[in-house]
Amino acid sequence: MPMTTPGSRDRVRAEERRRRWIFAAVGVGVIAIAVVIGVLSAAETGSALSVADVAGDPTIEGEALSTAPEDPGADPEAGSPSPVVRGTDFDGREVTIGEPGGAQLVMFMASWCPACQEELPEVVDWIDAGGLPEGVEVVSVATLHDDTRPNWPPQEWFEREGFEGPVLVDDAGSSVAEAFGLRATPYWVAIDEEGMVAARVTGMLGAEQLDALVDRVQGAS
């Protein structure tokens, strides 16, 4: 067994201390390089538009619906009168929801919501494929505005995805979403031509489920 003297122990400790400083310096150096790369390469990608710039000012008449249940088959609001909402789209054109006279499928979309981002192009494809019969309209509500989240502002997203139907812009407090009992997005409310709620569904819908919603609004009318 090798003998250690106080002198050799001191040398070992000094060597350990020296190595620790080197390792610590390497660690600090790596972090410093990461910050420098961050400073040099990061780009601020935020939009100049705020929620206040985008949000609409819709008016809501009628009684608000209760929060949509998880099971759409057990919806106590089925058959209730829909709130009537008058508002505008992103360009200031008037959009109305819930008024008797025409059946509507109302889809509530949040631009930052990845499920909505997946749903919207599928809806566009479904409409383009002729899934929407005459007399039934798909109206979107751009809601839950948040300019800190990705995919802002919403109007650019709707345009990019090629949705050509009317888009009612909710206010900053998401009053329209609240009036229709939104629990999560995407959220669908089917309103028959008498202005009654035929069905409410939370989640992504495929073409078959959209066909079924159309049947509900047509069957109820």
């Binding site: 930052w112 981002q117 989240r149 997005t185 995407p186 992504m204």
Partner: peptide
Amino acid sequence: PSLGGVCDPAAPCSLRWVE
């Protein structure tokens, strides 16, 4: 995102804050 179902308005797990 379809695995996560829907977007909870407060804090959806499918939201990519950073990419």
